[in-house]
Computed example of a mutant assay.
Amino acid sequence: MVKFDNVKVYKSRGNSETISIGGNANDDIRYQNPSSSTPSCKILSVVKDGTGNFSTEKQASANIDWTDPSAVSVITDSLSIDKDTIYIATKISSSWSSSVDANSDISSYSYALGSTPGNDDIITWTNNNKKKYVSVSTSILNVGQQYFFSVKATNGEGLESTSTISDGFMYIDPNLITNIETTNNAYQLSVYPNPFTDNINVSYKLNVNANVYLKLMDVTGRIIYSSSPQNQNTGIHSLEINAATNLAPGIYLLEMNIGGESNVYRLMKE
């Protein structure tokens, strides 16, 4: 009885050979890298001359990864806590969590900035190497415009994850936010402080008897506070809105309806 150990079977080929890769039973290579440091397999090759003599064996490791890396799970519009409003137009920042790729690891991250979610019309897709944060000097932000960061990862084989999009931030020029003082034929209105941190004080003087109510909304129109309509006499009236305590920083809208006529005023929460 003859026993053999470590038997190798070679497939005949020409000067080049196409090797099929995939999870099907008839593919030549059917496994991905078990880790980024361990190749999927080794490809061995020998050459036979005209008299039947074989050359020494040559081999090369094959790194195989056909799976996209995971998408970034968390992205913030700052270097730490997520911000919905920024007040400096010359610097924007974002940071994000790690992507994962078990087969070939993460080779780089890319980011973009758009005026709509997922767009890159402000900053086109930019390679950020392996850094999971970016701070960019810019002069292209418009007051009141919302902007969105997008981030995607690339693995060692060049495959990209789906992009993850931030919830957006808005640039507000603090010089344009002041206490509201306005007068028309029906009333005089004062709203302060603006910007506010907790309570909002609304004071108004009616020049005529009128039905009055007001609403505090976010920029999407979601009502945060509303007063019941009241028929009020001429004179001075005041109201304190304390629903602002738990609001996130950003822009809010105060709608004042007096005698069926509505006016909307912009407030900022610091």
Rank of each mutant, 00 (worst) to 15 (best):
residue 1 M to E: 13
residue 13 R to V: 00
residue 14 G to Y: 05
residue 16 S to G: 07
residue 24 N to C: 06
residue 29 I to S: 03
residue 39 P to N: 02
residue 43 I to W: 14
residue 47 V to L: 13
residue 57 E to T: 15
residue 57 E to L: 11
residue 58 K to V: 10
residue 61 S to W: 01
residue 67 T to V: 12
residue 68 D to N: 09
residue 71 A to V: 04
residue 74 V to W: 10
residue 76 T to R: 14
residue 77 D to T: 13
residue 88 I to A: 12
residue 89 A to I: 06
residue 94 S to I: 03
residue 102 A to N: 12
residue 106 I to C: 01
residue 118 G to L: 07
residue 121 D to F: 05
residue 121 D to E: 10
residue 123 I to Q: 13
residue 125 W to S: 12
residue 132 K to C: 09
residue 140 I to V: 10
residue 145 Q to C: 11
residue 147 Y to Q: 05
residue 161 S to W: 05
residue 162 T to G: 12
residue 165 I to C: 02
residue 165 I to R: 03
residue 166 S to W: 07
residue 170 M to R: 11
residue 173 D to P: 06
residue 177 I to A: 01
residue 178 T to A: 15
residue 179 N to Q: 05
residue 189 L to C: 10
residue 193 P to N: 10
residue 196 F to L: 09
residue 197 T to I: 00
residue 200 I to C: 14
residue 202 V to G: 04
residue 207 N to K: 09
residue 209 N to I: 08
residue 210 A to E: 11
residue 212 V to K: 02
residue 213 Y to L: 03
residue 217 M to N: 12
residue 223 I to M: 02
residue 228 S to R: 09
residue 229 P to C: 03
residue 230 Q to W: 00
residue 231 N to G: 06
residue 233 N to A: 13
residue 234 T to N: 00
residue 238 S to I: 01
residue 238 S to Q: 13
residue 239 L to I: 08
residue 240 E to L: 02
residue 253 L to Q: 09
residue 256 M to Q: 09
residue 258 I to M: 07
residue 261 E to S: 09
residue 264 V to N: 06
